[in-house]
Design a protein around this nucleic acid. Structure first.
Lengths: 184, 184
DNA sequence: CAATACCCTCACGCGTACGTAAGGGTTGGT
DNA sequence: ACCAACCCTTACGTACGCGTGAGGGTATTG
């Protein structure tokens, strides 16, 4: 009887109601945050994460580590590399005072907010292009099932002319320049 | 007098009003679409792009190639790998008829539309987390400039408690598990 | 004919974020 | 004591999307 974090082990602290206190082994942390053990190791190598060690040199993590890895994941989703995350941490660690650290963090977050907004805008534009292309392609259901791609350029079944770029560019099949080479 | 695509060359076709007809050399295409020559070569190696050749084995591209590369770029922005783009093209090329090709294309685009919407949603969530964190961090300006990070956990200047995760996780500095190792 | 400014085809290199295997300890239950 | 299930370190491997020469033609100007 005892499955604090792993299913069969409890190095210390257990059965006390909240398991928040039980140190997690690397595999437990990995499962908790949905990343591989190797990834956790990597984060620690890069200084993104710290751990205590058991007497047998096993890594032990606390609840903050869980938060930390989730934080890393979010920053990655925001498009930051592990190197960039490293420098965020370095900035914070090297700041003499809390307010100066927070200013640096703020600046970084501000940049990323702008970048994220821009990225969202780009994706939304692409999203609507995709939607338009899809509606354009609906019409193809009404096409003669035997018709060849080559005929698409003279198709008049669609409401929209010219076709969306996402559709038109896909029609540029095995073909080359219209006017071969050589200058008369 | 003659700078069709490059600035000093015009292999053929020129001074005819629209330059759309003038075949582009690889460098011209690259500049046009904002990618490196190496990238264009790669796309061709992967079968994403076709080209004619001059008698001296120079690649020659037409206007469709420009569209094609822009298309590739958009799909990349949508998160597709070059390999995935390859298979889109393969699907289209291998389809016996146009309507069947378009069905495959539609399926792919549908998937990507869903994935893109999901990605936008994730980014929007992160965006608002960032915004909240920024507003939280504004308050730090009112903090004693000499205060240390360690004091943040008992700070009551902020409107929001607890602090956003994006802020809290950054405070997990050089520290380890509260309860070191060893049992009892 | 020389000088540029391009282009060609290999083919190895790189940065990121891990995957994966090797060889060998540690933990905890029975 | 023994075993299964973990963990440790070290270190090479992988997938992507190009970057970067090397060595050698080609096209257009003067």
């Amino acid at each position: 009887m005892s499955l604090s974090a792993s299913r069969l082990r409890l190095p210390l602290a257990s059965c006390e109601g909240h398991e928040d206190q039980a140190p997690l082994q690397v595999g437990d942390l990995a499962r908790e945050v949905g990343r591989s053990v190797r990834a956790i190791h990597l984060y620690e190598e890069l200084g993104l994460l710290k751990s205590a060690r058991s007497k047998g040199r096993f890594r032990l993590f606390d609840a903050d580590a869980v938060m930390r890895v989730r934080w890393i994941a979010k920053l990655q989703d925001l498009g930051l590399s592990l190197g960039e995350i490293q420098s965020i941490i370095k900035n914070v660690d090297e700041s003499a005072s809390a307010p100066s650290a927070m200013k640096l963090l703020r600046d970084t977050y501000r940049e990323k907010l702008a970048a994220t907004a821009a990225q969202i805008a780009r994706l939304r534009a692409l999203e609507s292009e995709l939607a338009m292309s899809l509606s354009y392609l609906e019409t193809c259901d009404a096409c003669d099932p035997a018709r060849l791609m080559h005929a698409c350029s003279s198709c008049d079944l669609h409401d929209c002319r010219p076709p969306p770029e996402l559709v038109a560019a896909a029609h540029t099949g095995p073909r080359a320049v219209a006017h071969p080479p050589e200058k008369s």
